[in-house]
């Protein structure tokens, strides 16, 4: 059995119960602290570069070429995975899968812990997942795994992620990649 996360089997909406809220505009959240966006970006890059099996979970909003912004983001996320030495496992739809998902090739919001356990992922980034499914998945991951989760959200962020950076559009992702390159160099990775 994998290690449980900070929420364990809490029967309530975990992060908000602990007094955590999504960050205000221009800020980000690292565990329980509100910090400047750049501080959060540096820390996220450091965690991703130093954790075992760091993985990016792109969701439908960036996986599919449904708008120009989505296409730009797709290119940037691919670059991000190369900079962070991260694997990529898609959350390509939200249907519960019967009889079971293949955790080596996908993650599903209804049982995301299976993919994290199977691949022994210690840090991950959710990006392009619709917020209501990201909330479900992040709550499960928070309680049932010891994985450090990052919510890179185009809207107001996710309190159930260990780190959440809000209002992330294509230009913000480009900025994150530059910061990640600097951190990578500092770490000598």
């Amino acid at each position: 059995m994998a290690n449980l996360g900070p929420a364990h089997y809490a029967p309530y909406p975990v992060a908000t119960y602990d007094g955590l809220l999504t960050p205000p505009e221009g800020k980000a959240m690292l565990l329980t602290d509100m910090v400047d966006e750049e501080v959060a970006m540096r820390e996220v890059a450091r965690v991703m570069l130093t954790s075992e099996n760091a993985t990016i979970f792109p969701g439908p909003q960036v996986l599919y070429a449904w708008s120009e912004e989505a296409k730009k983001k797709a290119t940037l996320i691919k670059e991000m995975s190369e900079v962070l030495n991260a694997k990529m496992i898609p959350m390509y739809d939200y249907r519960p899968k019967y009889p079971k998902i293949d955790p080596e090739v996908e993650i599903n919001p209804n049982h995301p812990n299976l993919t994290i356990w199977h691949n022994e992922i210690k840090a991950c980034i959710f990006i392009g997942v619709h917020c209501h499914y990201a909330n479900v998945a992040l709550k499960i991951v928070r309680s049932e795994t010891d994985c450090y989760t990052v919510g890179m959200c185009a809207l107001s962020g996710h309190e159930d992620a260990m780190a959440t950076i809000r209002d992330q559009h294509a230009e913000d992702l480009a900025r994150f990649i530059e910061i990640a390159k600097e951190v990578k160099q500092e770490l000598g990775k």
Partner: peptide, 18 residues
């Protein structure tokens, strides 16, 4: 159709079946 065409960078990460 727009919502099921993979972004070119991601096609190789999608399950074979899809």
């Amino acid at each position: 159709l727009r919502y099921m065409t993979p972004a070119s960078k991601f096609k190789r990460y999608l399950p074979k079946d899809y």
